[in-house]
Amino acid sequence: MSRWTKLFSGESTSSAGSAKQRLQFVLVHDRNEIPPGMLELIKDDVIAVISRRIHIDRANVEVHVTHEASEGKLVVDIPLLLSEEPVSGRTTGRTTGRTQTPRA
């Protein structure tokens, strides 16, 4: 959108731009047969499983689906928490978050 149109319309994103973004989002889900709301459930599951073992930044976990060429991909981004505290209440496996691990 040109500066002038932006100035007069008072919009930051054009409606055509929103249409494109929303379509790209919904089509990735349509093509992979994963309803968008399902990702919230997967996210909760992932948080529960991973945080049994290591400290993670629960609030900033992101789960989304991408679709490139003909291949769908589930992408999970889990920021780790800097902490030396053992994960409470678990006795099996490694129980501390690794502070130097790059993002998953």
Partner: peptide
């Protein structure tokens, strides 16, 4: 309407 960015362009549709 495409020019005013109120409508998806042909390029947008082909890309999507």
């Amino acid at each position: 309407r495409v020019k005013r960015q109120e409508m998806l362009s042909a390029d947008d549709i082909v890309e999507i």
